[in-house]
Design a protein around this nucleic acid. Structure first.
Lengths: 125, 125
DNA sequence: ACTAGTGTATTAGTGACCTAATACACCAAT
DNA sequence: ATTGGTGTATTAGGTCACTAATACACTAGT
């Protein structure tokens, strides 16, 4: 089986965050459906050559975010609401990024038209 | 006199970078014209309650970027080319920001139209 | 030459963040 | 009850970025 997750140690992004991001993305894109079970912390940590605590941290934060749920018997599953929530929330990082850009544009006296033009170019490239 | 620069210790942005950003911005917007003299590292560090080294770091990086120049007598001035350069380059941070957003949009399967719509909204708000 | 200013190289300290080690508590099934 | 699985609290170690302390060299003006 192809590893569900892969972590890159060279890009500076902390491992626990890579796990979170990839899982969120897989849920947002429907690759992971609500109710799907996730590997145990130990299983995943072994597969990724990480300490269980690192995986636990990621899982814990995802649970706190409502992305995952814990069921009877410690089985960790994708939250039922998570799919739609992720689809609504998946624009958040993008919105954040664009909002920062909007502020910057104002600060630099770049007209909205210019900014949009620039953005369109970058989207095409 | 209003302090030319002000640093916020609570926003997480390192002091030397706040200095750089504010100076670049003031040049880009014409508030600081080419040839204008800047306070000495010690003077500025005293005003901002920082160590001279911190200011020196900012100045050094700005000089390396061609934004500032050193003249006979250690007087630090805004580079002649800096104004036009800053105007050309002032789109750089914006471009960077938007480029990251573009990548993100692709990753999230957000269509360019959607992304642009979102950006336009944020520019208006 | 002396003084008062300058910039900065080097070193050291601090704090934040991430990950690993260790150890404990819990549950389920045999 | 014991065994094999689970999750995780606590602690410790490592790394990195930032800033400060200290000390040195250099310049200009007197």
């Amino acid at each position: 089986m192809p590893p569900l997750l892969s972590i890159d140690h060279h890009n500076g992004v902390p491992a626990y965050r890579q796990i979170m991001d990839q899982l969120k993305l897989q849920i947002a894109t429907g690759l992971l459906v609500p109710g799907a079970e996730l590997p145990s912390t130990r299983a995943l940590s072994a597969e990724l050559a990480l300490n269980p605590m690192t995986v636990s941290k990621a899982y814990g934060l995802l649970e706190h975010d409502g992305v995952l749920e814990r069921r009877r018997g410690q089985t960790l599953i994708v939250s039922e609401r998570s799919a739609t929530a992720q689809q609504t929330a998946k624009l958040d990082p993008l919105r954040q990024q664009l909002n920062a850009a909007a502020h910057l544009a104002r600060q630099l006296d770049v007209t909205p038209a210019q900014a949009i033009k620039l953005f369109r170019e970058l989207l095409d490239s």
